[in-house]
Design a protein around this nucleic acid. Structure first.
Lengths: 124, 124
DNA sequence: TCTAGTGTCTTATTTTACTATTACACTATA
DNA sequence: TATAGTGTAATAGTAAAATAAGACACTAGA
């Protein structure tokens, strides 16, 4: 996998795994790939994977069982909350950025609308 | 000024200055504050300011005159282009992120709409 | 009981961002 | 011609992120 070198890799790993949980590729209770396997898949060091997982554990999204593996929390509501939080953060960040570039609310809406329209003409 | 410690300071400095150019606080041809002054204002090292300015020069947005100062380009079209590029990048990034979180186009539009509505109830 | 698969931890090294400090080069002006 | 204000550059040091390699602890199954 390719990373944006402007943001720490462990953050990006966290985001990827969060996305997989939210889209259901990793359902509640599911076993994550082994840390060593994740490290290979992501072409990254085990310690870096561990760091990402550590933050996900602190957040209560992942639980760890020594000798068995790492698992997505069984509490589906946590995943729902996570999604809401990530969506909110992203919307807020984008809005404030565009607002700082002097775009009005209407212009911001229009920009998004236009992007979607353009994008719709192509593949997914 | 306070920085987000998850993204390099020189990047954030670049963004701040770009915003000021786009909003007109720094008009085409305007003289930027002296590098040492910027360093004080931003509570940051001169070298870090220099690094940000270096990238802006490479991008053709800022020109430097030794002994005189750093200046915003006189070509207003470059600023226009810069704005368009920054807006596009931000919209794209936000959309793709939300899309990756399984939101439909309609849900993405609705999220933004709702955020703006909520935000409108408060101050700027 | 042994072994493979798993998470966890430690130690050392490299790279990058940032800071600190100093020196140099150029410009304008008193 | 001094001097103050400016950009530029070099050197050194610190901290954080990431890598590399290995050791340890636990679990499940042959």
């Amino acid at each position: 996998m390719q990373f944006d070198d402007k943001v720490p890799i462990y953050i990006q790993i966290k985001n990827v795994l969060y996305q997989e949980m939210i889209t259901g590729q990793l359902a509640p209770g599911a076993k994550l790939p082994a840390v060593r396997q994740l490290a290979v898949d992501l072409t990254v060091n085990v310690n870096t994977v561990q760091r990402a997982l550590g933050e996900m554990m602190t957040a209560g999204i992942v639980t760890s069982q020594r000798g068995k593996g790492n698992f997505v929390t069984l509490e589906a509501s946590r995943i729902t909350q996570l999604k809401e939080q990530l969506v909110m953060t992203q919307v807020e960040q984008a809005y404030e950025q565009l607002h700082a570039l002097n775009l009005t609310d209407e212009e911001i809406m229009a920009s998004l609308k236009q992007y979607i329209a353009q994008r719709g003409q192509q593949d997914d």
